[in-house]
């Protein structure tokens, strides 16, 4: 070889990498959410699209603002802010004033992520932080629901969508309707399982189609991008607990399909509780975490003051995550448990 020797790099082993990185993992979750998102758009029209756009915009703008200049491209490119915005948007009522949705996105990233030190350091799921903020600040707007109008009135904006910040909201447009959860909780009216599953019930814009959210979950499972133990533990524990209550007093407590297919259960269990940053790292921890959420959901729904339990259940278990991690360290190979 007369050729000059190559300039050798000394990158230390292993040189092989699994073809999975943070951006691809985020992209997988984004893709998985698409069917349910488009169903939401279909049922709730242009207003829904604008609400999601507003939360995403708020989240990404905040990420951009708080990231040092050189790191902006990478931080926005990893897709985590986009995902936070999207998840938040999907939990909101379709006719929420846009400025509120935008503010929710800002708070989700600002208070949910940035002040903790950015990606990987936050204790609570940012999207849920954003939603909790909105629910506390704008309780009326956040609980005003509309019937799923379907494609006929796709371009018809709800008057509240374009409401100006801090103005008196315009009068409700007469299309508002109680959600299945509200019906159940306050009036003890059951909803048909079909509408719960496919999304033409009234509710948050991305949460109403349990089946499509599940399809996305299956996709993640196939891509090996889902900590399946968490949703499984949630469904099993919530299901069993509900069954128990139902046997005690079937008139008062809702049935099992209700627990699993309704509200944000699917979205929360499959997409929010499994956020790696805010859930335990150990497999055993994942089981504990999921069971905790399942039990809390049923408790909050049936005995608490709110119709919706999953988001608060996740927040509570987020707080317990460091503790769960500490106590579920696996037994090291060849050592007895210490």
């Amino acid at each position: 070889m007369s050729k000059r020797d190559p300039d050798l790099l000394l990158q230390s082993a292993p040189l092989l990498k699994q073809g999975l990185s943070v951006p691809t993992a985020m992209r997988d979750v984004l893709l998985a959410l698409m069917p349910a998102l488009f169903a939401g758009f279909w049922f709730f029209g242009l207003s829904a699209i604008l609400v999601v756009a507003a939360t995403i915009l708020g989240a990404m703008a905040t990420e951009w603002l708080f990231t040092p200049k050189q790191e902006r491209a990478v931080a926005l490119g990893d897709g985590s802010a986009l995902l936070t915005g999207l998840l938040l948007g999907m939990t909101l009522p379709p006719a929420l004033p846009l400025w509120m949705a935008w503010l929710g996105g800002v708070v989700a990233i600002g208070l949910g992520k940035t002040i903790w030190g950015g990606l990987g350091n936050n204790l609570f799921n940012p999207a849920i932080v954003g939603r909790a903020f909105l629910l506390g600040t704008f309780p009326i707007a956040m609980t005003t629901w509309h019937v799923a109008a379907g494609p006929d009135s796709f371009f018809q904006l709800h008057p509240s969508t374009l409401a100006l910040p801090f103005m008196q909201s315009p009068p409700m447009d007469g299309m508002s309707a109680a959600t299945p959860l509200g019906l159940m909780k306050f009036e003890q009216i059951d909803s048909p399982i079909f509408s719960l599953m496919f999304g033409n019930s009234s509710g948050s814009l991305g949460e109403t189609s349990g089946v499509l959210l599940m399809v996305g979950g299956l996709y993640l499972l196939l891509r090996r991008a889902l900590e399946w133990r968490i949703p499984l533990a949630i469904f099993i524990s919530a299901g069993l607990f509900t069954l128990l209550l139902e046997t005690i007093d079937p008139a008062r407590f809702p049935g099992i399909h209700f627990t699993i297919f309704s509200g944000g259960m699917m979205l929360g269990a499959i997409y929010m509780a499994t956020d790696p940053v805010t859930s335990p790292v150990t497999p055993k921890g994942a089981w504990i975490f999921g069971c905790g959420i399942g039990v809390l959901v049923v408790l909050i729904r049936n005995f608490g003051g709110l119709p919706e339990g999953i988001l608060y259940a996740i927040l509570l278990m987020n707080a317990a995550t460091p503790l769960i991690n500490r106590y579920t360290q696996p037994r090291v190979f060849g050592r007895s448990r210490s």
Partner: peptide
């Protein structure tokens, strides 16, 4: 990227 605490390294380590 920062550690996202996904636990994949724990599931990879043969020594637990």
């Amino acid at each position: 990227y920062p550690c996202i605490r996904c636990g994949r390294c724990l599931e990879a380590c043969p020594y637990f």
